[in-house]
């Protein structure tokens, strides 16, 4: 039982790390595409980069949601005795 709890904590911590490290990358991508959008000279490219910005924002939001859930789950598991 104790071993299982330990294993679960380790798994959650690993997942949190993966999600946590992914968030700044999504933000960096957003900024990159945002700059490209501002520099784009044609309507097609502007629309394309705008859609990419939106996609990256969507990824960031999803990751934050998952991170929040994982952190709450970890908290619950750690509180269990």
């Amino acid at each position: 039982m104790k071993g299982e709890r330990k294993k679960k904590i380790k798994e959650l911590e690993e997942m949190i790390e993966v999600v946590l490290l992914s968030i700044p990358r999504e933000i960096a991508s957003q900024k990159f595409y945002q700059t490209a959008f501002e520099k784009a000279t044609t309507d097609i490219s502007r629309k394309f980069f705008q859609s990419l910005v939106k996609e990256e924002k969507h990824h960031e939001a999803k990751l934050r949601k998952v991170l929040n859930k994982l952190q709450n789950e970890l908290k619950k598991v750690k509180e269990l005795k």
Partner: peptide
């Protein structure tokens, strides 16, 4: 600023 001071193994 980037990781909200979250303590992971890294």
């Amino acid at each position: 600023v980037n990781y909200d001071s979250t303590l992971t193994s890294i």
